[in-house]
Design a protein around this nucleic acid. Structure first.
Lengths: 144, 144
DNA sequence: AGCCGATATGTTATTTAGTTACATGACCCT
DNA sequence: AGGGTCATGTAACTAAATAACATATCGGCT
């Protein structure tokens, strides 16, 4: 019965396993990032019981760029931009008020960092760029 | 007997508490980043017993820019550059081979990200920039 | 000196995050 | 049928971070 998701209608890659699809679906329906345990809690009714099941799915999903890990939050988001697999690195703006995350590409930033790397003899294979702060809405409502 | 470090000879700020000084000293003597628990292990002989003691010291140290947290590693480093408190944000290049971390400023990158923020109405208060990869030495020895 | 508020400490227990180890099942290929 | 590979399931565990509560210490004030 495995791989029984043949009949589904999602836009994502079509060769996800059941667990991967469940995890990605959960992320997709959430406005804010979710920790692995958050995800697990929401998938108990679907038969998932152990953290490892979530982590394994997340590993595959992030490898493929369908989900991203927010390092400063120990949490995950669904990739917002279908094209982000093509573009290189991505930056995130994380609102500490409402929890929402915006994903944006900054090619200039990326090339600057690559430039520094070349000069330093550093061979990068992953870059993390995360801004913490307040989104427009939260900044205007809590002036501080 | 508290604050008995008056007679010490460190260059750091001179108003650190005993625990803060112990933690910062531990970080300063380590070539690679240390997790809070790593630090704790190295300070048992000095009487520290609980994680919270370490986390509390780290909080103050990072607030003051004397130490930095590496989000993608859940670990901490001593600030390498005495001037980094003056400059704004800092970027890190983390070698996945030997574990060493290089700290570097990239004003251009910072201003680009600030530029994006303005356009998006996002008010940043912290930025995390971390590269993972191989340093010059490790890249040349493990060609892969 | 004595009091007081703010800050630093110490200790225990608990929550949250992530991994190791091992057994099972499905799929594909020959 | 046999064997390789990959996804799954489960339990036990290590690692990271915080909550709650009690005690001390410092700085200033009168």
């Amino acid at each position: 019965m495995a791989h029984s998701h043949k009949g589904h209608n999602h836009v994502w890659a079509d060769d996800l396993t059941r667990n991967q699809e469940l995890v990605l679906g959960t992320l997709a329906h959430s406005a804010a990032p979710l920790s692995a345990y958050d995800i697990l809690d929401r998938l108990r009714d679907d038969g998932l019981r152990a953290p490892l099941q979530i982590y394994r799915a997340l590993e595959k999903l992030t490898e493929r760029g369908l989900a991203h890990r927010l390092e400063s939050l120990n949490a995950f988001v669904c990739c917002a931009d279908a094209h982000c697999h093509a573009s290189g690195s991505i930056a995130f703006a994380i609102c500490e008020g409402c929890g929402k995350v915006e994903e944006f590409a900054q090619p200039e930033v990326e090339s600057r960092l690559k430039g520094w790397s070349e000069g330093a003899g550093f061979v990068p294979n992953r870059m993390t760029i995360e801004l913490r702060g307040l989104c427009r809405g939260c900044a205007s409502s809590s002036p501080a």
